[in-house]
C-alpha cells in the first residue's frame, strides 16, 4: 500500500525524484466520488478524511486541495466610451480551475516555504494561469488576474486556504468542503499533502466527478453533442404546445 501510494505520488509529479522520501504514509478518501447536479441541487458538502502514519519526530501538517476542471477563461473589462459602458479589452487565461479551495492544519505560510507552495499551486496566488496575450502589459495583466480571482471568489467558487483540517485522533484527520450550486461539472481532483517541518513527505490525489444528472444532463449533453436533434426536438415541443393551447382555449 505504501509503495503504491509513493508510486502514485511520483507519477503525479507531486514528489520529485530527487527528494528524500521519509517513511510517513498518508491515506485519504472522500465521502463521495460523484456529485450529481439535479434540478433541485443547492450545493453540498464533501468530507475528505484520512490517516497519517507518522514515523519519526517533527511537526506534521496536512494540506487538502479541491481543484475543479481546468478551462480557458476570458476576462473582459468595460470602459466608458461614447457615453456608454462597453467591453473594451479582454485577456484569455488557460488552465483556470473552475473550483479551488484549500484546507490546512495551520496557515500555509507556516506549513511550507513559498517556493514549495508555488510548486504544487497550493493557494490562489500560486495558480499558474497562462495569459494568451501577445503583448503582455504587466499592470493590466495584474488587474485581469485580480478580477478573475475576485469574481470567482464572489461566485463562491474560489475559497483560498480558508478551511481547517482537523485531527480527530492522533492520526485521523478530516476536512469539510462546502461546494455551491453553481459548481462547474467536470473532473475534480482532491489532493492531500503531508508535510513534516515544511518538507513534503507524502501526497495523494483522488478523483471526484461532478456531473449533471437526470433530464438536465441529457438535455445539456444533447444540446452540445447533437445540436441539430436538440433544436428539432425543441421546435416540435413548442409547436405541439402551441397547438395544444390553441385547442384548449379555442373559442366556440
Amino acid at each position: 500500500m505504501r509503495g503504491r501510494l509513493l508510486a502514485l505520488a511520483c507519477l503525479c509529479g507531486l514528489i520529485g525524484p530527487g527528494q528524500v522520501v521519509l517513511a510517513d504514509t498518508l491515506a485519504t478518501d472522500i465521502s463521495s466520488h460523484l456529485v450529481q447536479i439535479s434540478s433541485s441541487f443547492t450545493g453540498t458538502s464533501l468530507l475528505v478524511f484520512g490517516a497519517v502514519e507518522a514515523e519519526g519526530p517533527g511537526r506534521r501538517d496536512v494540506v487538502v486541495v479541491l481543484r475543479g476542471p481546468e478551462r480557458p477563461v476570458t476576462v473582459r473589462r468595460k470602459e466608458h466610451r461614447f457615453g456608454i459602458w462597453l467591453n473594451a479589452s479582454a485577456t484569455t487565461y488557460g488552465g483556470v480551475p473552475g473550483f479551488f479551495a484549500v484546507a490546512t492544519t495551520r496557515p500555509l505560510d507556516q506549513v511550507a516555504a513559498p517556493g514549495e507552495l508555488a510548486r504544487h499551486q497550493l493557494d490562489i496566488p500560486y495558480l499558474r494561469l497562462e495569459a494568451n496575450t501577445t503583448t503582455p502589459d504587466p499592470a493590466a495583466d495584474a488587474d485581469f488576474r485580480g478580477a478573475l480571482v475576485r469574481l470567482k471568489t464572489a461566485e463562491g467558487l474560489y475559497g483560498g486556504a480558508a478551511l481547517p483540517v482537523t485531527f480527530s485522533a492522533a492520526n485521523l484527520f478530516r476536512a469539510e468542503f462546502r461546494v455551491p450550486s453553481n459548481m462547474p461539472p467536470g473532473s475534480y481532483k482532491v489532493e492531500a499533502y503531508l508535510y513534516r517541518d515544511g518538507e513534503l513527505v507524502a501526497a495523494q490525489s483522488s478523483p471526484l466527478f461532478v456531473d449533471k444528472s437526470g433530464l438536465e444532463r441529457r438535455l445539456f449533453t444533447l444540446s452540445r453533442q447533437r445540436p441539430a436533434i436538440y433544436a428539432t426536438v425543441a421546435i416540435i415541443l413548442a409547436v405541439a404546445a402551441g397547438w395544444l393551447a390553441a385547442y384548449v382555449f379555442r373559442r366556440p
Binding site: V73, V75, R76, W85, V96, A147, L151
Partner: peptide, 9 residues
C-alpha cells in the same frame, strides 16, 4: 457595479 466579467470558454 463591476467593470470586469468572466466567460468560461
Amino acid at each position: 457595479a463591476d467593470l470586469f466579467s468572466l466567460t468560461t470558454e
